[in-house]
Design a protein around this nucleic acid. Structure first.
Lengths: 249, 249
DNA sequence: CGGAGTTTTGACTGGAATCAACTGCGGTGG
DNA sequence: CCACCGCAGTTGATTCCAGTCAAAACTCCG
């Protein structure tokens, strides 16, 4: 989100000698957008990593399949996120469109070069990787130590905080993914997801207008049920971690 | 392991004009080693990220604590690994010594600079980050979709493969961590870990000489029980992913 | 030897998975 | 228009895997 903000600010009429603000997004800005329908696959686990994608609109799911068909969704990508940031020469995971998606495509080789040649882009790229890593940590903690209700609450909370950093009550949350997606992301079954959501609605913590349109009625209770139990915030200071990467140019 | 191998190969008698092989490890090579006893803490989640460490000997556990004291170990670091690779301005996790550990310390600022100034180091650094990410993915899949036995088998398998890429039977595995560490890493309880290991021993898949000294008797069965069910290896080719990062200098 | 910490083992419980039926909804076509 | 179908989601009954509680056995040290 740091990125979109920056790219939006970038004036289209920038004078020739004024170096425009360079962001990761700007690398993609002159590429055409491609559209994918819900369920369409963009990349497949194990395929040669030939391209990098920037999500312009819609949501992607990132997942791996093991043995007998069990699927684990390791993350979702939203507008501004980049698909293919962390990879070797092959994709580590598959990516599919959750809903209608628009992306900009870039060749992996060119993208690498752009990153490596620009001392401005590099720290942003590092920051992306670190963000991804931080998210993965968060996810591992949740999967190894939280129960069903805590997982659902954590998920809804993160969805809500994605668009608005403020913690206003009565916040509407758009949930584009299906129950199956949620289940495979949270390490649960669709039945458990459904039951837990029903229970939360029953207690008035949330309510739902449509299948994919929820509303948070009791934000603080939802946060409490999420179980992160910020006993000391692990931070000590109460301050959120700095948004700036520690690896400057 | 790419790194140790490389650094070991680096000849100490390198002629003056022959540029020695530069590795991430070599950044640390002239720093003194520090020792920590089992259980000692090196860094704490949320603390300002002032230093980076290279593990020279021993094993570290990387973990986070949530709310009511639940602990999730997100990974272990072995000789050659670097602590603090992915971080913002604060550590994302705490790190403690599992057993007696020797590390080399480097200031985060200097390390950043070294990375940024060296077009040789940078891709290795990227590779480290991507490795870390790949490991995190693996872990998430395991935590969200594998049962207790599959988790234990996966863990033992990874331990075994860490030292020897070959898949010889009758392989001895050193397990430096306690059952509690394993439990907190695998998202289980000590009792379940113990029971599962006992069961594996009972079936002759593994055997144990000492608490921390196991032997794999039926490697292929262990692999089967790990549940990755390489139906198609996700790779297609049957080839392991290339060890070389996709982000060259 | 003793005592604390770690591991194993046992009995029991409980939370989420499983199996199964049903609801609701949007599209499609007779 | 509405009967029909398919799919996503909900709800219910039951099972079972791993968690919990408790106690015994083993290990490592002083």
């Amino acid at each position: 989100m740091l990125l979109e903000a920056a790219s939006h600010r970038r004036p289209h009429h920038a004078a020739k000698n004024v170096t425009p603000e360079i962001t990761l997004s700007s690398v993609f800005s002159d590429r055409p957008t491609e559209s994918f329908g819900a369920g369409a696959g963009l990349v497949w686990e194990g395929d040669p990593a030939t391209h990098v994608f920037e999500v312009v609109e819609g949501v992607l799911r990132i997942f791996r399949i093991i043995g007998d068909g069990r699927r684990a969704i390791t993350g979702f990508l939203y507008p501004g996120d980049i698909l293919g940031v962390s990879m070797r020469d092959r994709y580590l995971y598959s990516a599919e469109a959750v809903n209608a998606v628009r992306v900009r495509r870039f060749s992996a080789a060119s993208f690498q070069q752009a990153i490596n040649l620009s001392p401005e882009l590099r720290p942003q790229f590092f920051a992306k990787l670190c963000d991804e890593m931080a998210g993965a940590q968060e996810q591992m903690v949740m999967l190894s130590r939280k129960n069903a209700e805590e997982r659902i609450c954590t998920f809804l909370l993160r969805l809500a905080e994605r668009k608005a950093g403020d913690r206003a009550d009565n916040q509407d949350v758009d949930v584009p993914m299906t129950r199956l997606d949620m289940a495979d992301y949270l390490g649960l079954t669709i039945e458990t997801v459904s039951r837990t959501i029903t229970s939360l609605i029953g207690r008035g913590v949330i309510s739902q207008r449509g299948r994919h349109d929820m509303r948070i009625n009791k934000y603080s209770m939802l946060a409490r049920l999420a179980g992160d139990g910020d006993c000391m915030g692990a931070n000590g200071s109460g301050e959120p971690y700095a948004r700036q990467a520690v690896w400057p140019a």
